[in-house]
């Protein structure tokens, strides 16, 4: 969900010492109890596998234009989802387009998570002036509506998947760093961190052994939900012509090229639109499911 950018996952408390195996089993049991999360996971797996093995799965060449078979309706012989405005098989284009769509959403989220982790750990652990400076600097980015900032950065850098990724990293880092920073600075004051410090542990040890494990779970949950949102943002940039350029294509760009024939054959726009919404929802569901696993009591609503 778009609004999820503002959701702060709660601190995960270390579970009592049970074997790692049974903890994983318990976590899976809880995750599997959430039907929507399972559906989301299934959608993500199917779409990802189809994208990876596109040449094996796709029924057709995504760029081959069937002359005389333009804008064929779904269900036409050999074209399950129909053909587009120049006669290309839509299903095959969706499968190949998934490669770029997923890549430009997942990659920047992972990169942003790493940068945010570093920034947040430094800010939260150091505290004081350092934390102030980093957090105030991030505040500036919160003053921009996110989509607008992405358009600005992708716009000045110029079109292409690489710049699309850079733009998305830019908008994500402040939000993720704030989540990490506030968590770390609340953890820093807790007893077990003090105890570690009292036994002579250095900053690296404290960050690595005490802080990181407690921050990483909530960050993964947050990142998962954000991937859902970034599917939408990336699609928006592509729709604006700031992403994939021909012959490569992704779902957002497919919507853009299809909108010219909107009135006569809406399915050309509809198919990639459904994919965008479906996959964005799937990541949201999985993120919510993961949140419930990490934090079963709170915020299950």
């Amino acid at each position: 969900m778009h609004g999820s950018l503002e959701v702060t996952p709660t601190v995960a408390v270390d579970a009592p010492a049970v074997s790692a195996e049974s903890r994983l089993g318990e976590a899976w049991r809880r995750f599997a109890g959430d039907r929507l999360a399972l559906i989301g996971l299934a959608i993500i797996l199917v779409v990802t596998l189809a994208a990876i093995f596109a040449p094996l799965v796709a029924p057709d060449d995504p760029n081959f234009q069937y002359e005389g078979l333009r804008r064929a309706a779904p269900g036409v012989e050999g074209h399950l989802l129909g053909t587009d405005e120049v006669g290309r098989d839509i299903l095959s284009r969706l499968i190949y387009g998934g490669r770029l769509s997923l890549f430009v959403s997942v990659t920047p989220t992972v990169i942003a998570a790493v940068i945010a982790l570093l920034l947040g750990l430094v800010a939260g652990y150091a505290g004081g002036k350092t934390e102030q400076v980093i957090m105030r600097a991030l505040d500036v980015f919160f003053a921009f509506p996110v989509v607008l900032l992405a358009i600005l950065i992708a716009g000045v850098l110029g079109p292409g998947p690489r710049n699309q990724i850079i733009a998305i990293v830019f908008i994500l880092v402040p939000y993720m760093a704030r989540v990490v920073g506030t968590q770390v600075s609340s953890l820093r004051r807790q007893d077990f961190v003090e105890a570690a410090r009292a036994t002579g542990a250095g900053p690296v040890e404290i960050i690595g052994h005490e802080l990181l494990p407690n921050v990483i779970g909530p960050l993964i949950v947050y990142a998962t939900v954000l991937v859902g949102f970034m599917i939408l943002v990336a699609a928006g940039l592509s729709f604006f012509g700031l992403g994939a350029s021909p012959p490569a294509s992704d779902w957002g760009y497919m919507v853009n090229t299809g909108k010219g024939t909107l009135s006569t054959s809406p399915h050309v726009v509809l198919m990639p639109s459904i994919m965008i919404v479906l996959v964005a929802l799937a990541f949201t569901f999985v993120g919510d499911g993961l949140r419930n696993v990490l934090d079963p009591q709170g915020h299950a609503a």
């Binding site: 969900m1 778009h2 609004g3 859902g228 939408l232 699609a235 928006g236 729709f239 957002g252 919507v255 909108k259 909107l262 009135s263 809406p266 726009v269 639109s273 965008i276 919404v277 964005a280 929802l281 949201t284």
Partner: peptide, 22 residues
């Protein structure tokens, strides 16, 4: 609302165009 929150504005806009304008 869960679905509506996950529909990009441009998709939603094109949908309305198909329905109410075309």
């Amino acid at each position: 609302t869960l679905i509506a929150a996950n529909i990009p504005t441009f998709v939603f806009g094109l949908g309305l165009v198909i329905l109410f304008a075309v």
